[in-house]
Nucleic acid binder design. Structure first.
Lengths: 189, 189
DNA sequence: CCTATCATGTAATCCGTTACATGATTAT
DNA sequence: ATAATCATGTAACGGATTACATGATAGG
């Protein structure tokens, strides 16, 4: 049993695909698209084209197997190979993961809003508050619909972080919208 | 007065460059690099190469002006043009900014850690807690060093969000490290 | 004077996105 | 039967990262 023919760099998308295949078993790219929408999508969404392109990359490296259906649409059915599973496990057991920068466009705007007038600031606050409220509502709906789903404890844990973050963001931007620029100084210590 | 010769798509990097030039006046790419490190870097860092490449793009579009020093290093000195300033103002006055997905590798791992054993989970928690503690400490140092800097109120506001987020992350990952998988259900409401 | 680090840049790669396109199903 | 939407892809583009490279300045 030889290893994959060529080494490729594995990105988060790679591991998401491997993880979804390992979780749900053999799937078509379309299945993956649906699975993402139902699961990690709120945390990390990718366009469906990536779910067609990425398996090809992984297949070239021998980490997933591609089979074509015989009849009708001749869809690709993907599954994890043994090397693929090993790569996934290695990733999961490697605790290293540098935290993401915020990289939020709203915050970047806020940073420079001193260059504009106060109206721009308040408008930004309002818009951001609304946007985060929407996401919060979506997360809460998702939370409600996955209660007493014992199998998804890890998924619910990440969702928990998502909810906490959105609540924080709503509070933050509501302050901005009210014309009160938050300052870290009077810390609630 | 004609507009820039060609339209380009302006990305967050573009506006960061425009914003920094508008704030600090004419600068070389190296100045920009230093300014980023001192300012927005904690929120959104880019490699220095982008601070050489991006001004070229902006110059081609007429949004910044490039001059070469005469003596010695013949460095490029960049400044915002009138159209550049208008583009920046338009961006600042457009409140639209879809919030960023979390897209955190640690959370993605957490999502799939049901596929691995409990050790992996705890190790991940520990590592993430440490990483976020480090960032929190860095943010706190930055906060302390910018106190009573009246001109940077907007900067301090974004920093305030950064601090709050890191505190949240530390709490969250500490739970994971302790083997307690957070669940959104018992909401502190 | 030599070395190390700072400062300044170029070039290539590659992933992610956007745009486009078309074959199946389902509904009316 | 036709329209509409679902399902499934291909192809090109471009920005961001990575790797490489070299000229100045300072320290020993």
């Amino acid at each position: 049993m030889t290893e994959g023919p060529c080494r490729i760099r594995l990105t988060p998308v790679s591991y998401a695909v491997l993880g979804l295949l390992a979780t749900h078993g053999p799937s078509t790219p379309y299945d993956l698209k649906a699975a993402v929408a139902r699961s990690v999508g709120y945390l990390w969404a990718f366009p469906h084209t990536q779910l067609y392109a990425e398996p090809a990359r992984l297949a070239a490296a021998g980490l997933v197997a591609e089979e074509r259906e015989e009849g009708g649409r001749r869809r690709r059915v993907l599954s994890v190979t043994a090397p693929g599973r090993r790569a996934l496990d290695a990733w999961l057991h490697d605790a290293e993961a540098s935290p993401r920068e915020l990289r939020d466009v709203g915050l970047l705007k806020l940073y420079f809003t001193g260059l504009a007038d106060a109206d721009a600031l308040v408008a930004l606050g309002r818009q951001q508050e609304l946007a985060h409220r929407d996401r919060l509502a979506a997360f809460e709906a998702l939370e409600a619909s996955t209660r007493d789903d014992e199998s998804g404890r890890h998924a619910r844990a990440t969702l928990s972080m998502g909810l906490a973050f959105e609540r924080l963001a709503v509070r933050f931007w509501a302050e901005v919208a009210a014309g009160r620029l938050p300052d870290p100084a009077p810390q609630e210590g």
